[in-house]
Design a protein around this nucleic acid. Structure first.
Lengths: 300, 300
DNA sequence: TATACTGATAGATAATATCTATCATTTGGA
DNA sequence: TCCAAATGATAGATATTATCTATCAGTATA
């Protein structure tokens, strides 16, 4: 049985005339007659009673034709589902971002993404790096925005930008009065860190290593905002990604975000997607829009 | 697009392995791979992202596979509908009967029909002859039981039985005391008739013509039961089909059903069906069962 | 009686599904 | 590190099916 046979049967039901039904299906009358006969043989039941006056649908033929109509409608629906997906700059795009990037990057770029890719329905998912990678591999997510390095295996890595860190200190800290700090300045610093699982923790630890093993507190924060509050309470200092730094310094701000001298410590932010994905066109469009929308404080 | 391609896609979704999916579909792996590729080309969207580690369904692939599953289930349903119709002694059979036959014939034969054809679901429809013939031609009814003659055109006419009439008279009528009556006895009789549309009316009129123009009242009854009541009220007499005559005469019965002498006036009862119908086997089975179940008071 | 119309059949052709053989790439085990 | 196994893809050949045109048989109409 195939869909063409069902189309022929529905056409015969509607036209009650083999020649007209064949014309409606864009085939010859013997083709339609033969295919209909084949369908009847396969189903083991007569669907159409023919004579030279009028084609009569049997009871079976009417019920089967009704069911065939249903099936053909569902097939049309399947094609519509595919059509929706076929335009890579249309349809759904599931983006995963790590929590130290998402809330600070998106406000800069969402408006531009909506303008540049109006037919794309962007779904945002925020998880830590390991979870993101697993869901990407499973196909639940289409593309990730995260900080390198990670174990990407055969995934495609597409650089986005390089983001410098600033030193976040309590406003009464002596370092807050410097125009810029060096890694040496944090050699003996009490640094606050994110909890295990956040790659930012590893990045900050890498910077500490470069600075000569700065002292680290045992208290861990679950988010950058929690870190921020702890710094404001004078519990220690931390490295803050540039996009997480407020653009306007308020008069009673508890925290000073002091830049480093060059070469500043930075983290690489990249998009990652599966090598076999055919939506590379969409991913590159998203990457270009993000780069064009970033403030000049981050590098390419 | 065809149903096999949908089966292949669903199999790949379930197995996440081209070789296993191909085996499940009883085709070779290159066949499945090629057909899936053809489907993707036709739909214009990638459904499956392949690599040598694990097959990943794209978002489009998952949605299309879900829809394909739905379609394949509906196709199964269509085959079940056909299967139900394929056994001619099973499934539904729509029988049309005229009102002067149905209520009097069916009590004699329904039990036997149920025993003889247990898988047949008999639907009964009661209309006058013209309506029955139209619905038969339109395919709404499969077979008719009616009295001849009718304009059957190219329909198949299959004799069932010949049903004699009795003379129904009020019990105080002098004719009620005769063992049998002749057509001459009703020559001056006041005969009651069914209304227009009932072929029994025409049959009774034919008998009157044979008897020599018996007088006829202008009042018409809509059913045999109404006729019966009118006879009981002494309004006149009528011809009653044999099967409409109660088998037991009650002591206070108002009506006497007096038989005619031979050759008795009769009507031919037949089954009628469309020449092209392929359920002749079922119709003949029904006819045989009816004939075997009739009381001996009717002829073949 | 002849022509037109209907659906069916036959043989030829076009299109498609499926096969086997083999390829390219990746992975795992020795 | 090398070789074999496993994966999905491609190529060419074959089998199967869909469709064509020509024509048939039966019916209806002018």
């Amino acid at each position: 049985m195939n869909l063409r046979e069902l189309q022929y049967l529905v056409a015969v039901d509607e036209h009650r005339h083999f020649h007209k039904a064949a014309a409606a299906c864009f085939v010859s009358q013997p083709t339609l007659s033969g295919q209909l006969k084949k369908l009847e043989q396969e189903l083991g039941v007569q669907l159409v009673e023919r004579n030279t006056r009028q084609v009569v649908m049997s009871a079976a033929g009417r019920e089967v034709a009704d069911q065939a109509r249903l099936i053909l409608a569902e097939v049309k629906m399947l094609k519509e589902i595919a059509q929706q997906h076929a335009n890579p700059l249309a349809g759904s795009l599931h983006i995963g971002l790590i929590p130290t990037i998402g809330p600070y990057l998106l406000p800069h770029v969402m408006a531009a993404l909506r303008r540049a890719l109006p037919e794309l329905k962007i779904w945002l998912h925020e998880y830590q790096t390991a979870v993101l990678l697993e869901r990407l591999r499973q196909g639940e997510l289409d593309v990730l925005v995260l900080a390198l390095p990670v174990e990407t295996g055969d995934l495609v890595v597409h650089d986005l930008y390089r983001e410098p860190f600033r030193l976040a200190v309590e406003r009464n800290d002596p370092l807050s009065r410097q125009a810029a700090v060096t890694l040496g300045d944090i050699q003996d610093a009490n640094l606050l860190l994110l909890e295990e699982g956040h790659c930012l923790r590893d990045h900050v630890l890498d910077v500490c290593l470069a600075a000569g093993a700065g002292r680290k507190t045992d208290f861990h924060a679950s988010s950058l905002e929690t870190l921020r509050h702890m710094v404001g309470e004078g519990m220690g200092m931390t490295l803050m990604p540039e996009l997480a730094v407020p653009e306007k310094v308020r008069r009673n701000e508890l925290i000073r975000y002091v830049p480093f001298v060059e070469p500043k410590p930075t983290r690489r932010v990249a998009m990652v997607w599966r090598k076999n994905s055919h939506r590379q066109q969409a991913f590159e469009a998203v990457a270009n829009t993000i780069r064009e929308s970033l403030p000049v404080r981050v590098y390419f």
